[in-house]
Design a protein around this nucleic acid. Structure first.
Lengths: 79, 79
DNA sequence: CTGTGACTCTAAGTCCGTA
DNA sequence: ATACGGACTTAGAGTCACA
């Protein structure tokens, strides 16, 4: 699994855990609704600034998102 | 301190701890030497893919780089 | 060994819409 | 609520010559 696909899955999981819609997360993170969709589908590679913005909106440490992402990359069986 | 400047300082610290030149790090991470320079000076906001490439070259967890970066942002006294 | 300006090219990120 | 597409602007990716 590549980096952006793994990131997208982590992002979607975290968002759904918080019961947020893509639109709500977009508002909170001051990103575009369609861009959240692109990220979750692994179509974009976010910059670290975007990572920070998303982690603040999701109330999670940015390093934790990266940890989950890396774990995902090395654990193909996980979705 | 903003995200990219903090990232640059962390990157430089880690590189120097490993006694690597920008050129050597560039070789290891398969990035350009001048791009490493740009990153260390906070002139670029790397994507998470670039983060991964650098962390592999520096033999450090990518999440740890992010942790150090965030700590730097909230500890202005640190350089 | 590193900083920097200038550069091209690609991708980040936005905004409109439709289904 | 989300996926997806087109068109768009901005900024990063990546390189080079030179100081």
């Amino acid at each position: 699994m590549n980096v952006e696909v793994s990131f997208g899955k982590v992002l979607r999981n975290l968002r759904e855990e918080k019961n947020l819609s893509q639109e709500q997360l977009a508002l909170l993170s001051e990103l575009d609704r369609t861009y959240i969709s692109l990220l979750e589908r692994g179509k974009r590679r976010p910059t670290i600034n975007t990572l920070i913005a998303l982690s603040e909106a999701l109330e999670i440490e940015p390093s934790e998102i990266i940890e989950k992402m890396v774990a995902n990359i090395y654990n193909e069986q996980k979705n």
